[in-house]
Nucleic acid binder design. Structure first.
Length: 858
DNA sequence: GGGAGAGAAA
DNA sequence: AAGCGTTCTCTCCC
């Protein structure tokens, strides 16, 4: 397979390794397909552990990572064994406490394919596709890992290139590593949230929480269906408000929750890195239950418990988490610089803290005001729910008064983002709509606008907000919360990496990754929500600056068009932007890719007659690089006599000349171009078999080699010929002959192997005879030994050393009975002396394991 | 602090 | 017989 090899970066995992990992992941998945999520994570953990050890040995960093946290006053953190009883044993071998470690050598089962063929890309999806997990199924069998430690920063960070180290920063492998790491982290986070979400269903947990709510509140939370739509929503609103209030006053934030992972820029940042001492200690379901009983924990756990609380009284509640993976793109903020050595421990106010201090002043802004939005009642319009009417119209009577910062103010962990990482969405049955509720950080409800932190927030970035349903299915609801999904948020996401190289791979990867949490079916409710999210995306205002137009899915600027992109002739201007001059804004859908005639032909299309090129690409001069900057106008046709390019509407499907009289028309190279199936000439058939050409020769029919593409290996491209095109009527005959040829080949191969084997045997016997002669003729053992050693040393030299023995060995067949008696008489009739060379013997040993191995003359 | 332009690397 | 532009980072400027 010539196409499989690719030059791997030296210190990167070789494709082979990755493939091995992947296939093993797949195997594991196939074994018990319900456990895939854990398996994936487990495998990663194993990888990561290995990497950790390797790293620990390389660096002089302490072998024991600083992440072993002990719960104060408890036995050393170890997953409680009693919990493990019900699970299959080996799941428990892995403690997830020290999950994520370094990652320089991390190999994920998820590979970002680059310049490889398309079929290879499909493989990437398969690993997800053949995994069909519905939460319900998964629930029944697997408890899940105990927990995941998601503070990857310290370990992953060594991957970050130093800023300013241009050479390193630009490296392709560095970029790929980031992407890989991002993916791994994302998978981890998803698994983590999914697990927490499952814990929210736990009856014990729910029982512990349920008493928090008064009957009255529960009554509000479960409005009678007989009420009208508006009243039901109002009832729910009120119930949520009360529940939120109760929970807020009762729950105490004692630990630090998840926060954004940041890259380090140098190893110093890692050397002194300690996980925050107050980091969350909830490790397993027992801890979670305990948190439910004591109502203490991180704010994330708080949000999760709030979710469990609502579920406990029958509210359809989702657990939403804004995942905080390490960024996949360069330019992301990095870990704050380690403070000067004077105060290594006492943190001087970092950027994040400065930001927090600044934000603290305005915190009232985020505390609940009147609910910002009230959905208008409009059944029957799927996207009606997206419409929000200003709240001032209806400050409903049931809305609680603006919260007067109760005396039991929630204790905050110093230095946490003023925006939540976890929150809850509750289903408003009356309007078939989900509303966010955040009981602990912003205290808001029904207002999705307050969840997105500014981009300067180092501790929280709204990039992937995923909402988990009770059945463990999830939905990416980022667009509900992001104010500029298309212009900003997208860029930080794996599916927003648009470039000629990445194409849509990131998108496909994410889809595949989320597929395992896919809802079992698209219900009306889900459809409404999808419409709503789509609408939110479309409603997004136009970017205000030029940069945000780049790769924008809706808008496009002429200046950002790629070399091979043009605007369709009648492109509408949808606005202007830009600082000094006005720059026209077009719709992305009016941007078309233009190709040369040859490129179109490779897609099976030809330019229609009389079409004038939409643009002429100036030919690039290799040496004159400085010149190309000024090619700003597309009508550049001067002196280069560039390549004319056309857009698709200027082309039509190529209809190749038909096969007539069994004769296949060819191009001037004697081939027939079959880049796409439609290019097979009428009356012909493409047989993409490597032996097809020979078969046609055997049959004596006309067959044109099929040119299916080009391979760009090294400097120049070479044609790829796959099979032949023959007249359709010969199809059956061809197939038969091909089959015959294959059979013959198999037979030949068999025979060849047999012959090789026989040669080996023969040689061995010959050796035995030689040895026998020697032993016969020599009395003294010493001499015999010397002889034997001699032969051993240079087995090949025996002919030279002992020509007489060789001679005697030649009439070998005479004595054949004697030799063959022991091991079956299958000596060939043909004389195989010719390949009796040292080299021949050597390589055959590899081919034939058992018999061949023993023969070497000893 | 962020946006725009330009140079350099692969 | 078919690959030579993108993208990252720095600097300047508002």
């Amino acid at each position: 397979m010539p196409g499989r090899k690719r030059s791997a970066p030296i210190d990167n995992p070789s494709p082979r390794t990755i493939r091995a990992t992947r296939s093993s992941a797949r195997r594991t998945a196939a074994k018990n397909d319900n456990d895939v999520i854990p398996d994936v994570v487990k495998e990663m953990v194993v990888e990561v552990r290995k990497a950790k050890q390797a790293a620990a040995e390389n660096e002089d960093t302490p072998t024991e990572p600083p992440r072993k946290r002990k719960r104060p006053g408890e036995k050393p953190a170890k997953p409680s064994k009693e919990n493990d009883a019900g699970n299959d044993g080996n799941d428990e071998e892995i403690e997830f406490e020290d999950v994520p470690i370094p990652a320089p050598t991390i190999q994920t089962m998820v590979r970002d394919t680059d310049d490889e063929e398309d079929d290879d890309d499909d493989d990437d999806d398969i690993q997800f596709e053949d995994v069909n997990i519905n939460g319900a199924q998964a629930n029944t069998r697997y408890e899940g890992p105990k927990t995941l430690d998601l503070d990857l920063t310290a370990y992953m960070a060594s991957l970050a290139p130093k800023k300013g180290d241009r050479r390193k920063a630009l490296g392709r492998e560095e970029k790929d590593r980031r992407i890989e790491t991002h993916k791994v982290h994302l998978l981890c986070l998803l698994a983590h949230v999914e697990l927490r979400n499952r814990w929210c269903n736990d009856p014990e947990v729910q029982d512990a929480l349920r008493p928090l709510l008064s009957r009255k509140t529960v009554g509000f939370l479960r409005p009678r269906a007989s009420l009208n739509q508006f009243s039901r929503t109002e009832s729910l609103r009120r119930g949520i408000s009360e529940a939120k209030e109760v929970f807020r006053t009762r729950f105490e934030i004692t630990e630090r929750g998840l926060q954004r992972a940041l890259w380090a820029e140098n190893l110093d940042q890692l050397k002194d890195y300690k996980p925050p001492p107050d980091a969350e200690t909830t490790r397993n379901k027992a801890d979670f239950l305990k948190a439910a009983q004591t109502l203490r924990g991180s704010r994330d756990v708080g949000a999760q418990l709030f979710c469990a609380l609502l579920r406990s009284v029958g509210v359809e509640a989702r657990l939403v988490c804004s995942l905080q993976p390490l960024a996949c793109v360069a330019g992301a903020p990095a870990m704050p610089k380690p403070s000067s050595k004077t105060t290594p421990k006492a943190k001087q106010p970092s950027k994040a803290e400065q930001y927090l201090a600044a934000v603290a002043k305005h915190e009232t802004k985020f505390t609940p005001t009147t609910p910002g939005t009230i959905p208008r009642s409009r059944l029957g319009h799927p996207d009606a729910t997206s419409y929000q009417i200003p709240s001032l119209l209806a400050p409903s009577p049931s809305t609680p008064p603006p919260l007067p910062t109760p005396k039991t103010q929630v204790k905050k962990i110093k230095g946490e983002s003023p925006f939540p990482i976890c929150w809850v969405e509750i289903l408003d049955h009356a309007h078939q709509k989900y509303h966010p509720v955040d009981p602990l950080v912003t205290f808001s409800q029904f207002n999705p606008k307050v969840y997105e932190p500014p981009s300067s927030d180092l501790l929280n970035s709204l990039t992937y907000a995923v909402a988990f349903n009770p059945d463990s299915s999830c939905l990416d609801v980022t667009r509900r919360y992001a104010k500029a999904y298309n212009s900003k948020t997208r860029r930080w996401r794996i599916d927003g990496l648009v470039s000629s190289r990445n194409g849509l791979k990131g998108e496909r990867w994410l889809r595949a990754a989320l597929r395992r949490y896919q809802p079992p079916s698209v219900t009306d409710l889900l459809q409404i929500e999808l419409n709503e999210l789509k609408a939110a995306e479309l409603k997004e205002p136009m970017p205000r600056n030029v940069m945000d137009f780049r790769d924008h899915p809706v808008y496009a600027l002429e200046r950002h068009l790629r070399r091979n992109e043009v605007l369709v002739p009648g492109a509408q201007v949808s606005g202007t932007c830009g600082g000094g001059g006005l720059e026209r804004i077009y719709r992305r859908r009016d941007v078309k890719v233009a190709r040369t005639r040859e490129r179109w032909f490779r897609l099976g299309r030809v330019v229609k007659g009389g079409e004038v090129p939409v643009k002429v690409l100036p030919k690039m001069k290799r040496k004159k690089k400085g010149r190309l900057g000024d090619g700003d106008d597309d009508e550049e046709g001067e002196q280069g006599a560039g390549n004319p390019v056309f857009i698709e509407s200027q082309t039509e499907v190529y209809v190749p000349p038909p096969v007539v009289g069994g004769r296949v028309p060819r191009n001037r190279f004697g081939n027939v171009d079959v880049y796409v199936p439609s290019m097979v000439p009428r009356g012909g058939v493409h047989l993409p078999h490597e032996r097809a050409r020979r078969a046609a020769f055997v049959l004596g029919i006309d067959a044109a080699p099929a040119l299916t593409g080009f391979e760009f290996r090294g400097r120049q491209g070479t044609a790829v010929l796959r099979g032949v095109v023959v007249a359709a009527e010969y199809k059956g005959a061809m197939e038969a002959v091909i089959q015959g040829l294959e059979d013959m080949e198999v037979e030949e191969e068999q025979e060849r192997k047999t012959r090789m084997l026989l040669a080996v045997w023969r040689r061995m016997l010959k050796g035995l005879r030689i040895r026998e002669r020697i032993m016969d003729g020599v009395d003294e053992e010493a001499e015999a030994e010397a002889e034997a050693r001699k032969q051993e040393d240079k087995g090949k030299a025996k002919e030279v050393d002992m020509p007489d023995f060789d001679d005697t060995a030649t009439p070998f067949h005479d004595d054949e009975d004697e030799d063959s008696a022991g091991r079956g008489g299958f000596f060939p009739s043909t004389n195989l002396d010719s390949d009796d060379e040292g080299g021949g013997g050597g390589f055959m040993v590899e081919e034939e394991e058992e018999e061949g191995g023993g023969f070497v003359i000893e």
